[in-house]
Structure formats: C-alpha cells, structure tokens
Nucleic acid binder design. Sequence first.
DNA 1: CCAGACTTCTGGTCTATACCAGATCAGCAG
DNA 2: CTGCTGATCTGGTATAGACCAGAAGTCTGG
Lengths: 237, 237
Amino acid sequence: MSDAYYLRLTDRLRELLGDPDACVEGRLPAERTLAERFRTTRVTLRQALAQLEGEGRIHRSNRRGWFVSPARLDYDPTRDAGFNDYVRAQGRRPRTEVLLTDTRPHPPAAEALGLPADQPLFHIRRRRFVDDRAVLAESLWVVPERAPGLLEGDYASHSLWGQLRSRWGLSLAHRSLRLYSEALPEREAAELGVAAGSAGLSVRRAIFDERRRPVEYDEEHWLHDALCITVELDGKA
Amino acid sequence: MSDAYYLRLTDRLRELLGDPDACVEGRLPAERTLAERFRTTRVTLRQALAQLEGEGRIHRSNRRGWFVSPARLDYDPTRDAGFNDYVRAQGRRPRTEVLLTDTRPHPPAAEALGLPADQPLFHIRRRRFVDDRAVLAESLWVVPERAPGLLEGDYASHSLWGQLRSRWGLSLAHRSLRLYSEALPEREAAELGVAAGSAGLSVRRAIFDERRRPVEYDEEHWLHDALCITVELDGKA
DNA sequence: CCAGACTTCTGGTCTATACCAGATCAGCAG
DNA sequence: CTGCTGATCTGGTATAGACCAGAAGTCTGG
C-alpha cells in the first residue's frame, strides 16, 4: 500500500514481541528506549504501537507501559455457561468483582424488555478479570417478579443464569442480542483501567422466558482485544 | 479522568458534526482549517479526529478528507436474508461487486468445514456497498457437491442462500460463527479503500445442512463503524 | 519494621515545522 | 469535445523538543 516508515516499524516491533530478551514477562521496553533503538521519535513510534494495539497484539496500562496481549477468550453470548466456567475451560483464571447492587428503574433496560420505564429492576454491576486483567465491565438488570429475593442470595459466586433456572425455574428461551464495536465510555474505561475512548466491544442482551415474559437485560463492555465471539446454532430452517 | 485538551477538542468537534454550515454534505473542513479554527496543531487535532473515528462518528477517505459516518447497518449473520434485502429494508441503497470467482482448494475453509485441505471449493470474492460506501469485503467457499453448477448461474443478483435452498434444496441447519474486532488486513483494506490496519470486524461462518454435511464457509471483513450485529434466538433450553 | 515523603521512571499531551503522495480539478493542446 | 498535464488541494508521515501526571520504587524518620 504505502512504504510508510511506521508500518515497517510496526513489523519490526512485531518481531520483538516474541523475543523474551526484549519483552521481559510480556512487558515492552519503554517508549523512549524503543524510539532510540529504532532511531526514530516517540511520535512515530507511538503510531506503530497504536497499530499493534489495534491488531490486538499489545495493550497499554495507564502510565505503566505496553504489554503483550494474551490470546483472546472464546465467548458464546448465546450460551448459559457462566463466565467462571468458560474462562477456566480455556485454562485461564477468572475473577469477578461486584461493584454495586441496587433496585431502581432503568429506562433503557425497561425499554429493551418492553416494560414501563419506571419499573424498578434488580441491578448488579460487576467487573470481570481474566488472569488478573480486567476485560469486562457489565451491568445487568433482572425483573424482580421473575426472581424475588435475588439480591439477598449468593449471586456473586455462582452462575446467575444457572440460579435463575434452578431457583426460579426460568427457561431463558428467547434472547435478543446486539453487538458492535465502540469507544469505551468514560465510566467503563475507568473501571477497566484504560484510557477513555479505548477500543471496545459492546454486547447487549435482552432475555425472555418461554412465555415471552421479560427476565433480564444486560450490557457488557469488553476490551476489544480480549475476546472472540463464537456462536453455535442448531436446527431452524 | 484527565483534562487532556484533545478530549475537549473532541467534544467541540462532536458539536460541529451536526452543523450543516461546517460540514457540507457530511464532509468536514480540512485538517489545517480545523487546526487553525481551534487554535491548535494538526497533530493534536488528528488525535481528536482519531478519537471520533474510534467512536464511529466519522471516517476518512484516503487523502480526500474526513466525513460524517452514517448510521450503522443492522445485520443478523444468523439469518438468511440477503444483503440486498436487509440493506433496502433499512432504507439504504445496496450494491455488490463480484471481484473474482474460481474453483480451488482453500485449506482454512476446508478445515472449518471438516474437509480435506486439498478439496476444491467454489470460491466467490465480492465487495459490498451501502449508499456507495464500500463497507464489506468477503470471500465465500461452497462445497461443489452441494451446489453443482453454482458458478454458472446468476449468483450475483440473487441471495446466494436463497438459491442454495431453492435450487439445491439445502437446509443450512447448522451454523458456526466466530467474530472479533481486528485491524483490516492489507488486501481487504485496499478493496475497501481505507488504510491498512484500520479498525474492522471479522465474521467467519461455517454452515452445514440438516444431515451435518458441510455446505459453505465464508469470511467477512467489515468496516468497524458500519454495522451493528443483531441476533434473535428462539427456543432452546 | 513500617508508614509516609520523595525521586525517578513511565506514558500522556502538546507545540512547531517540514516534506511526501495521492486525489482532484482547471486549463490547455489536440 | 476529449484527453492529458500540471498546479493545488488534501491527508500521511516524520523530526525535535517540551512539560505534565500517574505509577512505582526508594529512602528516611519514627
């Protein structure tokens, strides 16, 4: 396409990523060091780093440095498997932090579920980690009539969907998903420890039971390089 | 978070986007003009523009300028509706260009379909437009036994899946999807007229009939700001 | 030994300037 | 009217230098 120097620089950096001498424990040398090594300026170097960041090869931690990104997590938003389960199934270490819970109306969730905007909903906000890297900030809203007493239970350590099924006999039959790439909003970026506006992936889900009664709505914000969405579909014409 | 000037600049630019005086026909003023207007340098301005680009608000056309991005296209990769249909259904104008067709083995497709790597496959590569903006570069591979004579037919103007069903009685029962954000590879970037490494979304699909025989595999590369994936799921426990 | 202050290192942001390369269009020659 | 040429517009890439703010390690006084 072009013989832009920074693209060639990007290739040279790519080689560097696999070199354990250069990247100790997945950490790249400082920008100033790299700029000097490649006889260029930080501005140009940062363009090349941003390129690799867009490819999902590296990521930055605020004012700490650049790090090699781990493999993407495979994630099927149509399945009921809990986060902990599928992270472990891929040989990674999951962790979840509940940031807040409350019960109040949330118009966007209500609208997606076809409920009146002032309908109070159980709300859980949490942050999830893979191998100690925060990769997901999410909020979920559950219709109180479907799962009375949810917030009093141990909603943190077990799969929420598993509980909805086993404790309240819900079927989660109908799902409506929307997902698109985004720039992370300020709040989510802060929770994930990245700069506002970093590349992310937004997943929104509305769930209804077999009688088409609304059950749950959730909004997920993932780091763009952290996941690969996989969906398996059977039957249907 | 921070009081970075360029983030405030981003907000000021955001206001500008809706202003028909400033953006004639969706085209932003030149970078030098904007930099002067906001009393800053092109370097800083370009950071702000890149931010808006990440948000999907604007996009660039190589050495022509910056343009306001249209609304995202809703797209359900699990449905059979043809591209032309759902683009029109959203009041937009679709167009498709076939870039090449051939018949030869393609190991990645074969692997996804569970076929030997040297199995020849019908291959169609095309580029698709919404309102004259190229938004999608895709390749698809069809198992010749499932649809003999496919490449001799009129595969361009009608829904390919519709033909697979009506002409060859296929059911397309099982689908396996993978999607993730990516930096557009050189080839796809060139076909879409954007810089290599621009943000994109990759969708790969493997399709099997009701007897689990492999039918088709395809690989789509979308501009990241051009679409919103929606999926509707029914039934299932 | 520990808590808090200080130093140093990192990336984050910004200014100013320069030249290159593709896109575009006006104008000219045929 | 047509097709080419060249000027001019745009963004793309690059240099050099500066200061700021947060992260992290170090040192010091209790």
